[in-house]
Amino acid sequence: MQALTNRLKEVDRRKMNFLERLYLIAIFKGMLITFSHIFKKKPTIDYPEKTRPFSPVFRGLHILNRDEAGRENCTACGLCAVACPAEAITMEAAERQVGEENLYREEKYAAKYEINMLRCIFCGLCEEACPKDAIYLSETFAPADYQRKQFIYNKEELLIPHPIENAEAYKKALGNRVKKETVN
């Protein structure tokens, strides 16, 4: 059979001679190897201070998008819930009332929108399914909480901050990735 790597090493089963049986040389060699690691570069990253650059296809926690005027994009069509292989998304639709035009972009909106982050497998199919550009997978990850039920994120937690009232937080939540999408 052809070797998969060139690191294959035949086990030496010859009888050891006296020096080898003392193991002192082997121990000394091993000690030298560990000692040489003192001078090696450490691959560890000081995580909270420094982060690794995300890959362009990174998929973190979801955000529900708003348009430039701060209106919610989602129309509660339910395509994301249908697309979701983990069945993590539930929603309830409602009709936009008169006077709510500055809140919702279209005449139908999601009154309730929940994603169970413990079920979600972060596949990104919801993002692809969405016809209204309403749901994105952001670069936030590693959520932590004390109770399981806290991981069912409701709409308030998912919605991106208001782009006019809270511009800074909006920018931050948008992250690199969404910007790139808008450029494309």
């Binding site: 560990t34 000692f35 690691h37 003192i38 090696k40 570069k41 450490k42 691959p43 560890t44 000081d46």
Partner: peptide
């Protein structure tokens, strides 16, 4: 940590 190319408590 140092012998294993890590940083250790910091």
């Amino acid at each position: 940590a140092i012998l294993q190319d890590r940083r250790g408590p910091n």
